[in-house]
Design a protein around this nucleic acid. Structure first.
Length: 278
DNA sequence: GGTAGACCTGCGCCG
DNA sequence: CCTGCCAGGTCTACT
């Protein structure tokens, strides 16, 4: 087993894993948390400023948690100094990081996420895994396995109108070259959005979730109903009586990006958490 | 460019 | 116990 010591407020593992970025991690006995990044199983536990790893190599964990890429504590101090709303959200819940997920799982996770609470998203994804691979809690099924799924089968498992989208999106993804989704990592956000939104069931919000949570687009701000409300009341008051049209989505996201800069997506996650999860 | 409806379902929630 | 509404949106048909 490996132990890492982290600076204070650099990571709150539990809050991070259950902040609605991903939906299939499990709480085990003794405080261990387990989940997959691609086919690799991770087993993590945090006690105060110590992070313990089991069954897992350190490099994989650092890459997944993005530990060496952003000194979150310092960044949060600067954001707190310039914004009272962020300051209060961070004070209540420091250490909320963004993770680097497997784009494949992230793609299908957020395809299932529209108008569903987190508990239901988890349940739907577990059903998808069980139907495609027989293992509800195993690694996320490959595209080949997902291609065997039928809409009727997924509807019977509670996916609702998302069932058709999952089947159609998998088919469309299969037409792309191998590794296409991974190759989007690091591309400009606008390019990622224009590549993803043609997929059935993927609009701008879900494209931004995939970009932010798995493709390193740190400035992406997925404007859901909660972030929209925060934008209207705090960062873009001129939108107070507006509705969430595509043009206003852009204005809201831009307001966050002006306020928080190239890592606006990270700030957004802390604000979102206070509003929607906790 | 913007508005209105439809679309599945729930260890759901409130009255 | 039951109706009605809401939940991390997207898409389509209209104005």
């Amino acid at each position: 087993m490996i132990s890492l010591t982290l600076p204070e407020h650099e990571l709150d593992l539990e809050a991070t894993l259950f902040s609605g970025q991903l939906f299939r991690w499990q709480r085990q006995d003794d405080g261990w948390l387990t989940g997959y990044v691609g086919t690799q199983r991770l087993c993590l536990r945090q006690t105060e400023s110590t992070l313990e790893l089991a069954e897992t190599d350190e490099a994989t964990v650092r890459h997944f948690l993005r530990l060496d890429e952003l000194a979150l504590g310092e960044q949060a101090r600067r954001w707190s100094a310039s914004d009272p709303l962020f300051a209060s959200a961070w004070k209540r819940q420091p250490g909320l990081r963004l993770l680097r997920q497997d784009p494949h799982e992230c793609f299908f996770s957020f395809l299932c996420a529209s108008v569903a609470p987190i508990a239901r998203i988890s349940k739907m994804l577990q059903a998808v895994c069980e139907e495609a691979s027989g293992e509800p809690l195993g690694p996320f099924p490959s595209l080949e396995a997902l291609l065997t799924l039928r809409e009727s089968q997924l509807r019977a498992r509670g996916l609702g109108f998302r069932a058709e989208r999952v089947v159609a999106a998998a088919r469309k993804l299969a037409e792309k070259p191998d590794g296409w989704l991974d190759s989007l990592r690091g591309k400009p956000l606008a390019e990622i959005e224009s590549e993803l939104t043609p997929f059935p069931g993927i609009g701008r919000k879900i494209a931004d979730c995939i970009a932010l949570f798995s493709l390193d687009a740190d400035a992406a701000v997925p404007v859901d109903t909660h972030i929209w409300r925060i934008a209207k009341t705090h960062y873009a008051p001129e939108l107070r009586d507006a509705s969430l049209t595509p043009a206003n989505y852009e204005r809201a996201a831009s307001a966050f990006q002006r306020k928080f800069g190239p890592y606006a997506g990270w700030a957004q996650q802390t604000l979102f958490y206070q509003q929607a999860v906790k």
